[in-house]
């Protein structure tokens, strides 16, 4: 399994942890810590999958998700949302806006890998590649 993952997360330690886990699993991981410039980062890196935190400085992850879904180039880009708020309302909002998966912090490393793999496979199966 390979491919490029854009990880948008403002907490440095979490960025490092997820980056380490996904890289070890064979992914090429790009990190980005600012919500305001996240969309440009997506366009610039053209990832196969985006891991997106909800609580971001500058711009909320949910807003970024909505914009991604609104643009033709990124409308079907797989997005895994992360949140530390853990309220079911946030989860529903995220799924409604078109998130493909949703993880609540803290999550297990296995859970993260499994989800990322599932999304990548699903994309490989249906999408144009």
């Amino acid at each position: 399994m390979g491919g490029r993952i854009l990880l948008i997360e403002d907490e440095g330690n979490i960025l490092e942890a997820i980056g380490f886990i996904l890289s070890r699993a064979g992914w090429e991981v790009q990190g980005h810590g600012n919500g305001a410039t996240a969309l440009e980062a997506v366009v610039r890196t053209a990832p196969d999958l985006v891991v997106l935190d909800v609580m971001l400085p500058g711009r909320s992850g949910l807003e970024i998700l909505r914009d991604l879904r609104g643009q033709p180039g990124t409308a079907s880009l797989p997005v895994l949302m992360l949140t530390a708020k853990g309220q079911s309302k946030d989860r529903e909002t995220a799924l409604e806006l078109g998130a493909d998966a949703y993880l609540t912090k803290p999550f297990s490393n296995a859970e993260l890998l499994e989800t990322v793999t599932r999304l990548a496979e699903a994309r490989a199966g249906t999408g144009p590649g």
Binding site: A17, I21, M55, K85, S108
Partner: peptide, 26 residues
């Protein structure tokens, strides 16, 4: 919600790195 966020954020790092350390071989 804020407290949850503030507690879960360090917990996430702690859990992720401790799981990495538990596997530890590489």
């Amino acid at each position: 919600s804020q407290i949850s966020h503030e507690l879960r954020t360090p917990m996430t790092s702690i859990r992720a790195f401790s799981e990495i350390l538990m596997q530890g071989d590489t």
